[in-house]
Amino acid sequence: MARALINVPATAKPGEIIEIKTLISHPMETGYRVGYDGAMIPRDIIANFTVTYNGDEIFRAQLSPAIAANPFVSFCTVAKESGTLTFHWTGDNGFTATETAKITVE
C-alpha cells in the first residue's frame, strides 16, 4: 500500500474556496530508462487520479511519465456541504490506492 499524505481543511464555511493538497509515494518509473543490466526498465506510473466529494467527481488528472516520483497534486474546490472526500489513484501493474478525508462545513 502506497503511503499518501492528504491535507484538507477540517472545517470550512459554506461557499468557501478551499485548497486540497495530496502527496503519494510512487517511483513514477518513466519506461524510458535503461537499467544497469542494459535492459529497459518497464514503465510503472500512476496513470489516473480522481477525487470525489460526497460521491460527485470534483477533480480528475491523467498523469504522464514526465511527472516526477512521489507526485504532489494540489487543487482548489468550493466547500458546499459536510462530508467525505475520496481520493483514488490507479496506475500500471494494477496499482490502486484510496484515501479519504472528512470536512465539516458550517
Binding site: 503511503r3 499524505l5 492528504i6 491535507n7 493538497k21 502527496l23 509515494s25 512521489n70 504532489f72 494540489s74
Partner: peptide, 17 residues
C-alpha cells in the same frame, strides 16, 4: 515552501513509514 509544509514535503512519506 515544499520543505516547510508537512503536506508537501515528500520526506514526510518516509517519516510516516
Amino acid at each position: 515552501a515544499m520543505q516547510d509544509d508537512d503536506a508537501a514535503n515528500p520526506g514526510m512519506l518516509w517519516v510516516l513509514d
